[in-house]
Simulated assay, not measured.
Amino acid sequence: MGGIVDFDVRLPSARADIHTMHTESGVALAELARITHVTSFPVLADDESAWQLAVTAARQVLERTGVAADRISQVVFAGSGEWDRPFWSPAAKVADALGIRDAHCYEVANFCNAGMAAIRLLSVPGALKPGEYALVLVGDRLSRMVDYRDPDSKALFNFGDAAAAVLLESGAGRFRVLHSAMRTDGSWSDYYAGEPVGGRVLIRRGPHRRGLADAYVRHFTALVAESLTALGRRVPEIDHFLVNHGDRDMHLRLLSALGVPEERSVLNYHRLAHMGGSDTLIALRDLEDAGRLRPGDLIMLATSAMGFSWGVTTLEFQG
């Protein structure tokens, strides 16, 4: 399989605040704090777009690696499908802004699992020829789709915004993609859905249903087992297990169920909320910046998404 050459993550300039959420929703501050884990977190400002953040991240990656625009054969924008404009290609827009002229540009919609789904598609043998590169952009506008006036949507009040750019090659890169395992439980497909309201699309929850937390643990543990079996590895050999930043209690419950020590994960709940599909990339960047990665480290990125889909992407750090 292919590998990640480099990646970058960008955060927007505005912030969501639980005091505003409390005023608009009537939900108690203490309850909101249990959902968001922080009093404020990054969201898109009125004059910011997800595709523009993605361009900034991609430009940094290309400058840092020295990869020329004409060597990029595919540009993929990954997210929910609710882009900055309707019936529009953010992948094509980003490619044009970066001077990438001859690439195939398209979108992958799988919500917060979309970035890893795109990496899966592009890292299989034959997806890229030797010397070719692919650019995966991860970006959404989740905060724009949350209605703080709706207390029934409070579970989504921790939705922030971020964008990431991931450069892939057919070789190992700095992070070789060893394995990808993904699955969807369609019985949850209608639990959340968008509703057009006043020129916006707002996410609404359907009737409350128990069991989603159990589904998270069940599907993630099954995917981890599938990946380890395919690789001939065991849980103690997982050096870093990074999880979508949705709920701290669920994060810890999953680590406990798997038998992965907390110190082998990254918990950013003291400074960030759920930053969409960029969560695990933010955690991976934190590990690298802190000098916690060693050549040969086995890294698992556990991502989940509305629909509901789950994925485990296994990387090996090359140094």
Rank of each mutant, 00 (worst) to 15 (best):
I4P: 09
D8L: 02
D8F: 06
S13F: 00
D17V: 00
H19E: 15
S25F: 09
A28K: 12
A28I: 05
E31C: 04
V38W: 06
V43R: 03
L44I: 02
E48L: 09
L53E: 05
A54R: 05
V76R: 10
F77R: 09
E82W: 07
W83E: 00
P86Q: 08
S89P: 05
A91V: 09
I100L: 07
D102A: 13
A103I: 06
A109N: 15
N110H: 12
C112Y: 00
G115V: 13
A117P: 00
S123K: 11
G126A: 08
V136S: 06
G139Y: 03
G139V: 10
R141G: 11
R144Y: 04
M145W: 00
M145I: 00
D150E: 10
P151A: 02
D152N: 08
F157C: 04
F159Y: 02
L168C: 04
E169G: 11
S170A: 06
L178A: 06
W188G: 12
S189E: 13
V197K: 09
R209A: 10
T221W: 02
A222N: 10
L242Y: 04
R248E: 03
L252R: 14
A257I: 03
L258S: 03
L258R: 06
P261W: 12
E262G: 06
R271T: 02
L272M: 11
G277I: 00
L287T: 01
E288A: 10
E288Q: 14
A290D: 15
R294H: 13
D297R: 05
I299R: 04
A305W: 00
L315R: 08
